[in-house]
Nucleic acid binder design. Structure first.
Lengths: 342, 342
DNA sequence: GACATGGGCTAAAACGATTTAGTTCTTATC
DNA sequence: GATAAGAACTAAATCGTTTTAGCCCATGTC
């Protein structure tokens, strides 16, 4: 049994396809279709179980009512929540979201953009990878709106972005550790050329400098991006094994690193916070449930999603008018959530 | 700047659209297009940054190379992993996946199926809700292949399913608790009319009966589906507050319940396993990291994803030949992963 | 020199919608 | 009684592809 099309309905109802189309799109009144015909068509459509073909519709109208969401990794709690928020928000405006993960791979990100572009999505929300700016400029050149989230390109202020103030967030966290008396604070971060991570590291460095903490209390461990879980844990272990001696606090710069860190701490049976204070950027269920509970800098995930979506919808409304607005990235505040680990 | 179409290329290269189409689809040789023309077209296409419009292509061919994945909740670890596996698997066959969550809502599930159908996906992998069988039969009637995962409809063996042997998994877990000497085992489950959950409960009941454990050791707590987090924790608390007295072990039948359970245990400061042994159906990062580590019945998530995808691809190949095969649900084994909590 | 063969391409229909510009009536207006 | 206005529809173009059928030309065969 084939799918029923608009012309099947037209035939059965004894009217033209145009009439059916008008009825299905609530333009019947405007097009002065009579009450009886409207009802007839509606009945036939219902009986036959008609479902409009969105490919045909999209092809004709140039709008798919779909937005593409590209994140780093959808199975990561932060991005999963973000995706959920964006989806809920999109639904309010009658948009559907299709999401995909880059795994932080430049090439994959390009492929995803290509795929979404081929599928004619109306707009994009993207967690960018390095060197993606040119590809994104192409989308803008086709006058497709794009909003970056979580990361941004400092040298491209024509690409709007919504993210947390990373510098401020990490500064605040570091300041807190210092205020609690810790002086040998190790930083564990992931290898990244991107501005948002540099901002985080800069936050740490500047606060240490401000308090006159020199090389004795300044220790940055950079985990290479593609280290497997084992290798990464090894690296973290090399820092944390100094707990109580060379290190009295550790600040993990991402959620994922924090979880690995917990695993190392558990393995080494380090006493938190007696031997080591622990702080992590970005919250996670595990941090709330672990004993002791782990303090975090919490990003306002819902707010990021909502703001990004609002910005996108705004541009979607005025689409076609390819005005390239200049915009400072929208920077939101990240809160410190103190728990038992400090 | 508008998107470039096949006819833009044709014009610029001085050939017909058909020729361009043949070249772009690697049918040039079969269609006896000359070497020079092929190169010319390829160059022009590259220069102009051509990206084929998948809407048009899908409309013409009737295939979108897309499969629809409907899960209960994509931000749940189990489904997130499942989604990832299915996506990876799909890519091997050059299919793209679009996923969405039902939140276990019948109505929403129907809407999602409708949406995917309108978008002309080629096949479906669905975690069904109650009463969804009829809607799924309609898809089959349009000869669209559907594979159920995680759940099934016992009275509809014409809808193929891939899932874990829930009865066996829970039986094994219960048996293990008993073998360790526990005799007052509480079961915490979520309200559900669906067969997979009934199978789980049945596994528990039968093993207790087999060991002659009567009402004194038999306690089933059913959490209503839409209780908020607080209400659910309250319910769980009402069971666990008997730890060491009316209850000596608890078996959570889902991942989510287990996490809530941990939170309650933490709050009540129950000593695990001294006062209470804990077992949960379905693994989670938290269970590995919590102190003590929590024993689980682990579902072979990757295997479920792979088997489901394999079954779908098989049917996709023979699509059009609407043979309704009858098939026993594929039932995989769930392993017991003993940890410190028992 | 008529006819077949095959190489190298193109025209045009089709997919299923939307939308513009009509067409055909009926009724009102002067 | 001619004309205009509106009511109730419809024809046909269009979106960007794929694909079938066929065109034109050169070469080979008898």
């Amino acid at each position: 049994m084939k799918k029923v099309s608009i012309s099947d309905i037209a035939r059965k109802a004894g009217v033209s396809v145009s009439t059916v189309s008008f009825v299905m799109n609530d333009k019947a009144v405007k097009m002065r279709i009579s009450r009886e015909v409207i009802e007839k068509v509606e009945n036939v459509a219902r009986e036959m179980g008609y479902r409009p073909n969105q490919l045909a519709r999209g092809l004709r109208t140039g709008k798919t009512k779909t937005i593409g969401l590209i994140v780093e990794n959808i199975s990561n709690a932060f991005f999963a929540t973000l995706a959920k928020t964006i989806e809920d928000e999109a639904k309010k405006y009658d948009y559907k979201v299709v999401y995909c993960s880059t795994d932080n791979d430049e090439e994959k990100a390009r492929e995803l953009i290509n795929m979404l572009s081929q599928r004619q999505v109306d707009g994009y929300i993207i967690t960018p990878t390095l060197n993606l700016a040119d590809e994104i400029r192409k989308l803008q050149a086709e006058s497709k709106p794009v909003i970056l989230i979580d990361r941004y390109f400092p040298q491209h202020d024509e690409i709007p972005a919504v993210l947390v103030d990373n510098f401020e967030g990490v500064s605040r966290g570091t300041e807190y550790l210092i205020s609690k008396g810790y002086r040998k604070i190790a930083l564990v971060t992931i290898e990244s050329e991107m501005a948002h991570m540099k901002d985080r590291v800069r936050g740490y460095c500047e606060i240490l400098k401000k308090h006159g903490i020199g090389s004795e209390g300044h220790q940055v461990k950079v985990i290479p991006y593609n280290s497997g879980k084992e290798a990464a844990m090894q690296e973290i272990e090399s820092v944390l094994s100094g707990a109580g001696e060379s290190v009295d606090a550790v600040f993990f710069l991402t959620n994922y690193l924090g979880v690995l860190g917990i695993e190392v701490i558990k393995k080494l049976r380090i006493k938190v916070p007696e031997q080591l204070a622990v702080l992590c950027f970005d919250d996670n269920d595990i941090f709330r449930l672990y004993t002791p509970t782990i303090s975090v800098i919490r990003q306002p995930v819902e707010e990021i999603g909502q703001k990004a979506m609002a910005a996108l919808i705004e541009r979607l409304k005025h689409s076609g008018e390819d005005v390239v607005q200049e915009n400072e990235p929208v920077q939101l505040h990240a809160d410190l959530v103190p728990r038992e680990s400090i």
